[in-house]
Design a protein around this nucleic acid. Structure first.
Lengths: 344, 344
DNA sequence: CTGAAAGCGCTTACAG
DNA sequence: CTGAAAGCGCTTACAG
């Protein structure tokens, strides 16, 4: 391997100390260094193609300009898109990003946190799995700059950037009510994650405020194993029987994809037999027969704000910033007003 | 911020040198150190919750146990999935991954390479954009451990892990020919990237070998600006006129998604009016009316092999490993044999 | 105005 | 068998 040139090499060639070279290349003490020496140094640095060793710099300054990002799964389109915006925003500030996937597993999350901290990341962007409250508290105790994204723990005072999930689902139900749908069901994930339970709370509150019937069986929580089959079974139950549901909300993108596939294979007509609201935006919706109504998360803002809140925290460690962004309901044919539905 | 405990802290408490502590905690010279001292050291390390500072370790050893990953766009499902497998495989060997997106832009790629090298990554996994041959050669000159993934440059002798794109498309055309389709078109990306041009070469070779008609107008290359509209226009041209095409190949996942949407909006019946073969696997295909035939890339193997080839290169720098993996054709209803097509 | 010296937290060749 | 010392490549308080 070709030897990289170091400050020392430049210093030797120019005949000055490494200190002076460091000052010049970092534009420090500009007014105190003779123009000529500075010029020589810069020229030699360029000639030797000097590239500073960030590791050495980091050891000295104890700042790595690296952020750690832990999501549930980088292969999930939501997190992949989020990661992209985080990357771009971090790059704007000359930070790089190390990413890792927790698979919603608290033990794995703990391991990843330790790894990232050993690499001296300057701060952590964390989409926490359920059950890591103690890990987050521990990070705070250690004074690690931290921002939660997508999810957070209402009982722990941390910085976070998240969707207002209550409002998002509340709005979606209101939209259905206004369009004339009365029997509204929801399929959600079986989890304690706050962002998901908030969606349920929004659903239930909106049913009440819109004077719609609430039935225990119309709200179904589904675990990760056998998810597609369980979603299909639930939809079948929802749509058959004497008083079938008129509209369904899918509370996550994973649920939505499974739900839409089930709707196709059950040959349920959308929206005539069943109106549909999905969560998150994806290219895939464009392949469904009916244009789909969905709740759009402002993923770009989530990513950008996560980075900028974290960078603020680096500057002012005591500062806590909590941001809830509103989702946007994109109304399409899958929730057409009942009054203008075509006869079957 | 709570002060982290260092080797020195442990050494002070136990009353030995930092050197000895380092030896014990790294399990070096085991037989030369008295069991008792070793035990004390381990105990104190545990009590003080010692976590080694990787930055300091890296500066000394000049190995960071970090890999750099540059893809076109981490938000693209193919690269997101690839990144996930790379992450998992790297983690197995106690490596972490810094990722970055080049947006197929050579200048951005150069900038990212420089950034990653300054961070002293041990090696680079690169899905190179077109036009970065000189950058790759430069990396080789510098002796940077490197593996290309997904794409490579046939004229440069580097390690790579890629799909056998020629074979993949050749097989797909053969499948169509066998099913009885005679007029076969392809929509591909307008690029010099080898992996894409190989797909074109496979298409053309298979047409010839299967004695199918080749027409210049049946092979259409489309640029990134206005891609969806251009794909739609092309499909319309393909399917209208006196001698419409009977089958179409979409040469990438982006083309496929645009193509499928266009097929829907043009109300072209699949496979009766047009048989379809897509590239890459995605959840989204499940929402299309007809089960789709597609070419599956072994993404997991691609990711795992990229990491293991790179780690091999770290051990034996001179070693070049070139791997072409075969794609798998998943035959479904969208390419049903002509003989059993239902009448329109 | 300039630069020698100390030190960040480790590892390891080397001397005793 | 054990550990002091040097050094990785930087930065910066400090002395001149």
């Amino acid at each position: 391997m070709q030897k990289k040139t170091s400050l020392k090499d430049i210093a030797q060639v120019v005949g000055v100390s490494t200190a002076l070279v460091s000052y010049v290349l970092n534009n420090k003490k500009e007014n105190r260094i003779s123009k000529e020496v500075a010029k020589r140094i810069r020229q030699v640095a360029k000639d030797l193609n000097y590239q500073p060793n960030q590791i050495a710099k980091s050891l000295k300054t104890s700042r790595t300009r690296t952020l750690g990002l832990i999501v549930a799964d980088i292969a999930n389109p939501f997190f992949a898109t989020l990661a992209r915006y985080i990357e771009d925003e971090a790059d704007k500030h000359n930070y790089t990003v190390i990413f890792a996937s927790s698979d919603e597993n608290p033990d794995k999350c703990q391991k990843l946190i330790t790894t990232l901290l050993n690499r001296q990341v300057d701060g952590l962007i964390l989409a926490p799995p359920a059950g890591v409250e103690s890990q987050v508290i521990d990070l705070q105790k250690k004074g690690i700059p931290l921002v939660l994204v997508d999810r957070y723990f209402p009982d722990i005072r941390t910085s976070y950037v998240a969707l207002n999930n209550f409002q998002a689902m509340y709005t979606a139900v209101g939209h259905l009510a206004k369009a004339g749908y009365r029997r509204v069901g929801m399929i959600t994930l079986d989890t304690d994650l706050f962002h998901i339970t908030e969606r349920t709370r929004g659903y239930l509150a909106a049913l009440q405020d819109n004077h719609l019937t609430t039935r225990r069986s119309w709200l179904k929580s589904i675990g990760p194993s056998n998810l597609p089959a369980d979603v299909a079974r639930t939809l079948q139950a929802f749509t058959t029987g004497p008083q079938p549901i008129e509209a369904v909300l899918f509370a996550s993108n994973v649920i939505a994809m499974a739900g839409l596939k089930a709707i196709k294979s059950l040959s349920v007509a959308v929206p005539n037999e069943l109106a549909v609201v999905c969560f998150d935006e994806t290219d895939a919706y464009g392949l469904f027969d009916t244009p789909l109504t969905y709740i759009r998360q402002p993923v770009q803002e989530l990513g950008q704000l996560a980075v900028s809140v974290l960078l603020d925290t680096l500057a002012i460690p005591s500062q806590i910033t909590q941001i809830n962004l509103d989702g946007q309901l994109i109304g399409q044919a899958s929730t057409q007003p009942v009054s203008i539905l075509l006869p079957d």
